[in-house]
Design a protein around this nucleic acid. Structure first.
Lengths: 390, 390
DNA sequence: AAGCAGCACGGAAACGTTTTCTCCATGCAG
DNA sequence: CTGCATGGAGAAAACGTTTCCGTGCTGCTT
């Protein structure tokens, strides 16, 4: 048995407990450090009795391995990077939580990096991920993914994207099925009698925004809807953008009786504008959002929106990375799934209702008057009643 | 000069670029690896010309050091843990962002761990932090901090808490100055003519909730306010709790004309209840929140609330940890600040207005009637007008 | 009965750094 | 001119693990 090389040379213990290392365990269990390592890593060939001794020593010393040393020799950091735009964007927290939870359950830790849409910051983020030797990166950021990602690709680091395909054999794609949710929404509005439906898109250079718009156009065509180009407004996925877009729509001669928005913040902005001009939602105007962020439930009226499960997205992202990093765990290594489909579906709340009686009735952009006969607040739970006006 | 020990034994390069290590740099710069290390770490004694050669080689090879190897020998992980309750709690994202940003700027990475109020999960979280050898932990979780933290304390890991002091010399405390913000709020309501002010607290076993209540009681006493015990309701910092609390207050014979809530979600719940019973806010009833979460701005009417800057909190937390970990950077090592005060201040929006004319006028809990003369929605920008009723 | 295969364990190398220690050169003073 | 101090650079140890390899034992086969 090898005695501790330099027991006396240890760093001063300081006030706290000394942290035990693998040699302490080996010493106590009267085995070699190799056996301790094998036991801890669940190698099957270890003798049962020895393993028992090791575990006992581990428990007694409250030993846990040093991740840094582990990673250094094994080459595995058990770390995934999660690249997002901004934590404060209400879209992300759930995504982060889902990703972190499943990662931790599988023994990984997560390094979150928010790019803040800033290329310089993005470079820093990627550098950090590289230095920490992440084993994979989930790129959940919206912005255009600069050639910075090449750095990762060249280092053979697996990646997973949303809506963006690459020819990199190590990267996977999550394909969001925008069409099903958006088709449901259009159908829903159609059933409520709407014939003129507008769309407020996101910034169209963002691929996911573009795809949402495409899905809407397709659904409209499918149902033979009149889609005036004038009713397709490009927004920017912000509340203010939604306000502006709605404002613009109200100035039109022929205005749709309902709009679908590319994300919830846009829809909430539209809601705001309608309230400002005393256009009652949903009696006079229906609004549908996209994403089903938390906030959607809390605005007034509660937002009908299209749900894209962040939990699903997170799980799919993790699994894509894991299946790349640990191919042996999965059935046929060669046939790793490179694409995963993420479903979307409509969540009906209070911001959609029957179309006003007169077809294409144009909601008046009335001046505000502070009398008591301004529109009533819509009672909770009462839905789809025809507005008194029209 | 030492030749590469085993250039041939390198791992197969695979499809990607080989990652260069410190030896490659040394070889190229024709210096020893020690000099490379010193250069990179900014040791002043390195000859200028050699340093220049090293930097050139570093740039050319796109070299960056391996954090794991670095940490293994130096004992420093350059990693801070951030322990929070739940990412999805709207209070946290800004805090996380602030903490991460300042940490990255100082060369640290952040390991975020959400406990989800679950002791078992908390144990896992702490274990993770220990295994990764974090150099410090910011404990921003609300829940009772179990003796699990002893594990960290015993390992001499610096910590920083909010509102909770310990005798651990390595831990610091952020003392939130609830009193100033809450006093401002009470003053504000007083100026608006309110004489009967209620308080919906959080769960009182949480220290920060308790302190908020205490601050309110003290402010009330200071201004000679009548504080009926009946107007002090214990909530649970959730929207539903806020709804229940408000519901309860409305059943009272003598009901306050304004309430201060221990957090914004509670206030939003109260807002909800008021809307449900057609009690107009702020004409008939004023509501003040606490925290100034993002959402506060988006509800209707926009919430008057007490701001506690998450950015400040994050910065203070980081600086507390940093000054413990790197004492040499700061003037007098022995005099490290163990407590930092975090200011709070009132943000006036639309949910507070003048008290109803009749003193102690009790808002009627009217049945809902769907007529057009139900209360008008409050126009944006028009504030503090006396309600028509009373 | 002897030889061989298999296997479980221990010894030791290796991972990529930082850091200590040693050595040499240079400069200044005696 | 010599000796010593100073300082900068290289050699090597150390960090705590995993993993490779060798060895000795066990059990089976011929």
């Amino acid at each position: 048995m090898t005695a501790r090389k330099s027991a006396g040379k240890r760093k001063a213990d300081g006030p706290g407990l000394r942290r035990f290392d693998i040699r302490d365990v080996a010493l106590r269990a009267k085995v070699s450090i190799a056996t301790v390592s094998r036991t801890i890593n669940g190698v099957a060939t270890v003798d049962r009795e020895l393993a028992a001794r090791v575990w006992k020593a581990v428990k007694h010393l409250n030993y846990y391995p040093d991740t840094q040393a582990r990673g250094l020799v094994s080459g595995r950091s058990r770390l995934f990077g999660l690249l997002i735009s901004e934590i404060t964007n209400p879209f992300f927290p759930e995504l982060i939580q889902g990703f972190e939870e499943i990662a931790v359950r599988h023994g990984y830790d997560v390094l979150i990096s928010s790019t803040s849409h800033d290329p310089a910051r993005m470079e820093v983020c990627i550098r950090r991920l590289l230095e920490r030797k992440v084993e994979g990166v989930a790129v959940m950021t919206f912005g255009i993914e600069a050639p910075l990602l090449d750095e990762l690709a060249q280092r053979s680091i697996p990646m997973v994207f949303v809506d963006t395909t690459t020819d990199n054999p190590l990267s996977s794609t999550l394909v969001v099925d925008y069409r099903s949710g958006i088709t449901q929404a259009v159908k829903h509005l159609l059933a409520l009698g709407h014939r003129a439906i507008g769309f407020v898109s996101g910034p169209l250079r963002q691929r996911s925004a573009f795809l949402r718009k495409e899905a809407f156009v397709e659904a409209s065509r499918q149902f033979g809807l009149e889609t005036s180009l004038a009713w397709m407004v490009e927004g920017d996925h912000t509340l203010e953008g939604g306000m502006r877009a709605a404002e613009h729509l109200l100035t039109l001669g022929a205005c749709p009786s309902a709009i679908l928005c590319s994300n919830d913040m846009t829809a909430i902005g539209a809601l705001r504008t309608m309230a400002k001009h005393n256009v009652r939602v949903p009696e006079e105007f229906s609004i549908v959002g996209f994403d089903n962020i938390h906030l959607a439930e809390f605005v007034h009226p509660a937002l009908t929106t299209i749900q894209m499960s962040r939990k699903d997205l997170a799980r799919a992202a993790f699994e894509a990375l894991q299946s790349t990093v640990e191919p042996q765990q999965h059935a046929k290594p060669g046939e790793r799934q490179r694409e995963t489909s993420i479903p979307t579906s409509l969540v009906v709340r209070q911001s959609t209702g029957p179309a006003p009686h007169r077809e294409n009735a144009k909601p008046a952009k009335r001046p505000y008057t502070d009398t008591t006969d301004t529109p009533a607040r819509r009672p909770r739970g009462v839905r789809n009643r025809v507005g008194a006006r029209g």
